Simulated scan of single mutants.
Amino acid sequence: MLLSQEPDIQVVGEAADGVAATDMAVALAPDVVLLDVRMPKRTGIEACRAIKEATPSAKVIMLTVSDEEVDLYEAVKGGAAGYMLKDSSIEEVAQGVRVVAEGQSLISPSMAVKLIDEFKQMSRPDHQQGPRLRLTERELEVLRLVAKGMNNREIAKVLFISENTVKNHVRNMLEKLQLHSRMEAVMYAVKEKILELP
Rank of each mutant, 00 (worst) to 15 (best):
A29R: 15
V26S: 03
T165K: 02
E92A: 14
L197D: 00
S105E: 13
L35R: 11
T22Q: 14
A80V: 06
V93E: 03
V190K: 06
R49Q: 06
V76N: 01
G103N: 04
V76R: 03
E92N: 12
D31Y: 07
E175G: 05
R42W: 08
E46S: 15
V113M: 07
P125T: 12
E6T: 10
D71S: 15
E14S: 11
G79P: 12
L143E: 04
L195F: 02
L177Y: 08
D8G: 08
V99Q: 13
G96M: 07
L140I: 13
D8Y: 03
E14H: 03
L72S: 08
S57D: 03
V97P: 04
D17L: 07
K86A: 14
L106T: 09
G13D: 10
D117Y: 01
A47N: 02
A25Q: 04
A15S: 11
P7R: 13
D117W: 01
V93P: 06
D67F: 12
E46N: 13
I161N: 04
L143T: 04
G149H: 01
K167T: 15
K59P: 01
K176R: 11
A80F: 02
V186F: 04
E74K: 11
G78Q: 00
V100K: 12
E196N: 12
E184T: 14
S4V: 08
G18C: 00
L34W: 08
P30Q: 03
K77L: 06
E102Y: 07
A80Y: 01
L2T: 04
H127Q: 14
R124T: 14
A156Q: 04
L197P: 07
E163R: 14
R144G: 06
K191L: 06
F160L: 11
P30M: 05
I116M: 09
V142T: 15
I90E: 07
L174M: 15
L179E: 02
V170Y: 02
K148P: 00
I90R: 05
R144I: 12
Q121T: 09
